[in-house]
Simulated scan of single mutants.
Amino acid sequence: MAKLLNPLKIKNLTLTNRLVMPPMATAKAENDGKVSQGVLEYYNEKSNGGYISLIIIEHSFIMQQGKASENQLSAADDSTVEGLRKLADTIHKNGSKAVMQLNHAGSAAKFEVTGKEVVGPSAVANPRMGNVPKQLSVEDIKDIINAFKEAARRTKEAGFDGVEIHSAHGYLLNQFFSPLTNKRTDEYGGQVQNRIKIHSEVIKAVREAVGEDFPILLRLGAADYMEGGSTAEDSKIAVVEFEKAGVDIIDISGGFNGYIVPGAKEQGYFAPLTEAVKSVINIPVILTGGIVDAEAAEVLLTEEKADLIGVGRAIYKDSNWAQNAIESLR
């Protein structure tokens, strides 16, 4: 049997195959971040037939200060739960599992969007935006950790199958991980172990909120592909700690380079990173990055570059992609 068709069980989550739709922002939410009819229709179309075993919902903000863009989904207060429940139900009815991705944009946020002061690990320019945020105090960090915890509680209450902590694409947790934006001299800066202290604390807080059986995923921007940025070696150290802290699945992407690798043409261009982190941990790893053919996904799984394959743009462009891919391998 094709490896893409193999089921996988993680805690109380059973996936029918190895195909994942990674989080992709739609900007379809209401102005206040609540689930709109447009959001429901979009995910209903993508999950139709249940061919995608796992759908990870686009990044949702955990507090107003961490909102990344207009019409972004919210998990920032209890009033969002009702709409999120409809979203989880819509995906479940079609036969797919649903995970909610939680995020704080940090210095990638804009005052025009949030109405709040822009913050980050250190008062240094964001490499992508150029703006200099206010450095977070330890007290501020504790508030953010608590916001992740509360958003995770809402995720479970809404009936999702798991929660993903976002530390990729140059957002707040990724800003702590990257030496480009983390110049702190306290316990949250310096060596990799210090730069991921906030991650470990978020994971612990989320676990307290959701209980032992609820899967926690973490999306890591595993390399910045920039001079002085984070590297695969940093990520190998980090993922070992994440596994110890209680993460169930590691989802690999880029750091300040976003979801692309400069100059990469091959399908599954984050494979060198997933292979590196897979060598040091025992939990499943998701590989995304330019995968457009079922055969390419199959090869990456066969070569043990990853345990799960994320297909984003191809599914975004063609809602029948998953059905055609699965049927071609049967």
Rank of each mutant, 00 (worst) to 15 (best):
A205M: 02
I196L: 13
G189L: 08
V210Q: 01
T185H: 04
R207C: 10
E212I: 08
T185R: 05
K197I: 03
L217R: 03
G211P: 13
V202A: 06
E201P: 03
I196D: 05
H199V: 04
I198T: 11
V210N: 02
L217H: 00
Q191C: 00
G211T: 12
I198C: 02
D213Y: 12
F214W: 12
T181V: 14
I196G: 00
E212Q: 11
K197H: 04
N182F: 09
R207V: 12
F214Y: 15
I203D: 03
R219M: 09
D186E: 07
E187K: 15
I203E: 03
R219Q: 04
D186Q: 03
L217A: 02
G221P: 12
T185I: 09
S200D: 06
V210H: 07
N182L: 13
V202C: 04
L180K: 13
E212Y: 14
G221E: 06
K204C: 00
I203P: 01
L217K: 05
T185D: 11
V210I: 15
D213A: 07
V192M: 13
E212V: 14
N194Y: 12
G221V: 06
L220F: 01
N194P: 11
S200A: 11
Q193C: 09
T181S: 14
K183I: 01
E208R: 09
F214K: 04
Y188W: 09
E187P: 01
E208L: 12
A205N: 08
I203G: 04
E187A: 12
K204D: 14
E187W: 01
H199R: 03
I196R: 07
L218H: 10
R219W: 00
V206F: 07
G190M: 06
F214I: 10
P215W: 06
A205W: 09
F214C: 09
D186N: 07
Q191W: 00
